[in-house]
């Protein structure tokens, strides 16, 4: 049961006239997964989410939510769906409680469970104290929370959040992130954002979309491996010559950063760290700094999304990531 696919997208395309906003995207999200949807502005993130939630019809392709096709059985599919659009769909003239009551009724929550559903949604989003306030008078962050409460009120199988942490303060962001992780216990979550650390801290899978195409689809664990780069930064008080370092087995290339620091390009399979430490001790190089260099998600993101217009320094690894898109 824990491995069932809750969202399946097959060859999804969407054109606005001659503009191809989304082109031939396919992916799946399983129960318990949090999928981070990344991409530069205008890449097609919001369009994809609008299609997923039935707000927009696809030009081609299918969307299946928990086994129901969103076009053929919209009612059943949408009952399994909670959606927070970019702009939270709130009525400013209602109070938080009235608004959530309306949302709960729209989602056909049985009468005797209404109160519980609303209270638990308010509690999870930290809205209990603002229940009687007008939504229009709340700050942006609280309005965003109301939007999230609306999306989870009927505990749908699939929660789709379009940039949920926009406009929140750091504490709220942390709360929302833990809420998302909590949601992932029994829902699938799709999350679009352009805040990269957010993806690293909350998601267990990442997709990068650029110009309507899916260019990366990896689990966070795989990605972390990818990010473990084969560069080593070391510093000595009495540095040896470059020649001496290059002669160590496993070192491919040495770049001198400054008088004491070197950047070593190494073979991951034949890690020379041990040897370097030993030689340093033996020959009094006075090693005082040694750190493996990790490539951040940001670098991968930049490498992938900008590789099409200008050729930045794309490392062969990043390319292999890009190539491994549609498994």
């Amino acid at each position: 049961m824990n491995n069932d696919v809750l969202i399946r997208i097959e060859h999804l395309s969407r054109h606005y006239g001659p503009i191809r906003a989304v082109e031939n995207i396919s992916f799946e999200v399983k129960r318990g997964e949090v999928l981070g949807f990344l991409g530069p502005n205008g890449a097609g993130k919001s369009t994809t989410m609008q299609i997923l939630t039935g707000n927009l019809s696809p030009s081609a392709g299918r969307v299946i939510i928990n086994g129901y096709d969103i076009l053929d059985q919209p009612r059943l599919a949408k009952a399994e769906l909670g959606y927070l659009p970019e702009t939270p769909p709130i009525y400013r003239e209602l109070t938080v409680y009235e608004y959530l009551l309306y949302c709960a009724r729209l989602n056909k929550i049985p009468k005797n469970q209404l109160r519980n559903a609303i209270n638990s949604a308010m509690e999870r989003c930290g809205l209990t104290e603002t229940r009687k306030r007008l939504i229009g008078n709340l700050s942006k962050g609280y309005q965003q929370r109301v939007g999230i409460a609306q999306a989870i009120i009927h505990s749908p199988a699939v929660v789709i959040l379009d940039e949920p942490t926009v406009g929140l303060d750091p504490i709220q962001i942390r709360e929302i992130r833990s809420l998302i992780r909590e949601l992932s216990n029994n829902h699938s979550v799709i999350l679009s954002t352009h805040i990269l650390p957010e993806v690293q801290s909350t998601c267990n899978r990442v997709q990068i979309i650029n110009k309507g195409k899916l260019v990366l689809n990896e689990s966070i664990d795989d990605l972390n491996q990818q990010m473990q780069s084969d560069n080593l930064l070391i510093a000595f008080r009495h540095p040896p010559g470059i020649q001496a370092l290059e002669s160590i087995g496993g070192v491919v290339r040495v770049n001198k950063v400054d008088n004491e620091r070197f950047e070593l390009h190494i073979e991951p399979a034949n890690d020379p760290t041990d040897k370097i430490v030993k030689m340093s001790a033996d020959q009094n190089w006075h090693l005082y700094e040694l750190s493996p260099q990790r490539r951040s998600l940001e670098e991968i993101f930049m490498a992938i999304t900008s590789s099409e217009h200008q050729h930045v320094d794309v490392e062969p690894q990043a390319l292999s990531v890009a190539a491994g898109e549609s498994n």
């Binding site: 939630t53 919209p74 009612r75 949408k78 959606y83 659009p85 009525y91 056909k108």
Partner: peptide, 14 residues
């Protein structure tokens, strides 16, 4: 205009 239509569109309502 206020983008609240998506609330109705993504609810199980025809």
């Amino acid at each position: 205009r206020n983008r609240t239509l998506s609330l109705l569109f993504s609810a199980p309502v025809s």
